[in-house]
Design a protein around this nucleic acid. Structure first.
Lengths: 368, 368
DNA sequence: AACCACCATGAATCGCTGT
DNA sequence: TACAGCGATTCATGGTGGT
């Protein structure tokens, strides 16, 4: 790892050991092009959580995620954001990632410190952890805030590169990417995950391609196991990491040493598989294409069923999905409800599948 | 529109004219089940925005949407959230929708006022307006925050209904729904859109099916053209709207008058098993479905236990309920004995839960 | 080699009711 | 109000080990 330290020179491609606020304040002002920050989320978890198979969820219970109150968290957030802003060049920018536990505090602090929000970007996880108790929505996304140093500042935005990454369509504010697992997930010597919240390289790839140029200096004040540094090196950007945990630093050093610049595989990971879009029948009801209470008729006209507000059917004394009710009424092991159930429109009998085709056609015009 | 006003009675299915904070404070406390709020966005657009072909984009530039500073906006936000919280029943909940311009302030204020965030939900727009200048990401989503009145409060969550709406997979925190246009988009007399930020009915359908029950009272303090009221009426919920703009109120009145409520049985929604009547295991023994001394086998066939006359089990040297013995033998923190224990019938292995289902079916025919 | 069954796991603010 | 007992609850992915 190169270490250039001189009067006003930056410690490029180095991981600095220590508290991020102190370390940032020791660096020269207006010297960094981009900051990517993944601060503690302040999760406030209570007891243990078990999966339905009784295995225990390995939660984030590390000391670095514990704060006494919102007030303490807010002070911490404002302090590191202030130090970060001092480091940014006038046309620099910042990305911060978080979840609903902390991201509203972070966004407020960003605005209060004078940053100018450019977009919030949603990372839609292709494979999130489910909600095991069925008490809330699956927590399937995290939020990133992208902001410039101040209102009116110029900032780097590689519009065409992002468009290319997105199959020729303008990049949107929601990114579907898988979470970090498999071989990319770093393990410690005992085979356990080295860091509880390692971010996928595909995410950083899109951030750095979109908002930096080759040779730019990228700083990450919560470096962890160094995803930002690894991707920066691949893409020919300079990085500075700050991390106070020695274990994480060691893993990151080793990881980054093994990275080759311009690794083409990185481009491959960034695109998540796009499956044939699945249209839930319930969406026809939500979108008003079918009305709750409306009659459906079986293709052979032998059976009827009524649509309910939650997208299930009632036919005779059978309740369930369009497929379940069709199968039950026909005494068949399975049934494709989309082609089995029909509606009457203008005296004609039409399968409900026409609505699904309509939605798919809309989606094809403007892909996911 | 019905108007029932009395001592402590609620003005159900009415649009109240006036300032939302004053009007909320005039209503009785702890009287509302759900609040849905779409507050002004504080967009701070500088000058007009033009498409590449120079046609003007009709941005949100109404006077009510301008705020002098974040401080003023924060005061306003805290004030209406406080008034709203007073109105909520102890087990009530709130939804607030916004974009990056205001949602971070709103989320922070929610937490500061004592609400407890349950999820943030991203409305992923299927057909957003592109970013014409190519200087940022297409702003393709809005954020909703769902919160209960305080930590530990119960709240309504129709898990099974939402799962049905989503083709049998639990509902995630990212919802893909189209924006409101076409016939659903209300026009004023001159053919212009009646409201700049009319929300789609599909969005409210999912919110109300998921977090209210029929007959619940839903309040919308920024009623606009009344999407909340229209969908509440369809779904057999009661609404209260507050709107200070007379033009919006008139459009909303007319709109809601034309809405038909769905059939009562169409509003029945897939129920959770938690709502089913509780059957003591001992009843199976009393009714002779299982005989004292009969052998039960664990689902994985690794353990056996014997039924006793009082409805407890003996397995190895463990005695207790079907759940306790199952948990002890598996070394698990808990166990559902109904699905864990099986009997042999005609060479097949069947969970004892079939007996419970049988009893429940009898009870449905002849309710107690 | 190809395929399949099985298992492990991921930033999680994850009960309710009767005594 | 604290405590104990009942019993409800998961999706996508990737690795491993066997046929």
């Amino acid at each position: 790892m190169t270490k250039k330290m001189g009067a006003d020179a930056l410690p490029l491609n180095t991981i600095l050991a220590g508290d991020c606020i102190e370390m940032m304040n020791s660096l020269p002002e207006a010297s960094v092009d981009l900051i990517f920050a993944d601060p503690p989320y302040n999760l406030q978890l209570r007891g243990d959580l078990h999966r339905p198979d009784n295995s225990r969820v390995d939660a984030v219970d590390d000391a670095w995620d514990q704060f006494a109150s919102f007030e303490v968290y807010d002070r911490f957030t404002s302090a590191w954001l202030k130090a970060a802003r001092r480091l940014l060049k006038p046309n620099g920018a910042i990305w911060v990632i978080g979840s609903y536990h902390n991201i509203f505090r972070v966004g407020t602090a960003l605005q209060n410190e004078g940053y100018w929000i450019l977009n919030d970007v949603v990372w839609r996880k292709a494979n999130p952890m489910p909600n095991f108790r069925g008490k809330r929505f699956t927590n399937a996304h995290e939020t990133m805030i992208w902001a410039s140093k101040e209102e009116g500042a110029k900032y780097t935005f590689n519009y065409e590169a992002l468009k290319s990454l997105n199959e020729g369509v303008q990049m949107r504010s929601d990114w579907v990417l898988p979470i970090c697992n498999g071989h990319e997930r770093l393990k410690d010597d005992s085979g356990e995950k080295a860091h509880p919240t390692q971010k996928p390289e595909s995410l950083l790839h899109r951030v750095l391609v979109g908002s930096t140029n080759p040779g730019d200096v990228v700083l990450d004040p919560f470096f962890g196991t160094g995803t930002t540094g690894a991707v920066a090196k691949m893409l020919g950007r300079e990085f500075i990491g700050i991390e106070r945990d020695e274990g994480y630093r060691k893993v990151a050093e080793k990881r980054i040493a093994n990275v080759r610049k311009f690794d083409r595989d990185a481009l491959q990971v960034s695109a998540s598989k796009r499956a044939e879009p699945r249209i839930p029948f319930g969406q026809l009801v939500e979108r008003g294409m079918l009305r709750p209470g409306e009659q459906l008729y079986s293709m052979n006209m032998r059976h009827k069923a009524k649509v309910r507000a939650d997208g299930t059917l009632v036919g005779g004394d059978v309740k369930g999905s369009i497929h379940q009710v069709g199968a039950a009424l026909e005494g068949a092991p399975s049934c494709n409800g989309w082609t089995y159930w029909c509606i009457r429109r203008d005296g004609k009998t039409v399968p409900i599948d026409i609505f699904r085709q309509q939605i798919r056609a809309e989606m094809a015009e403007r892909p996911i």
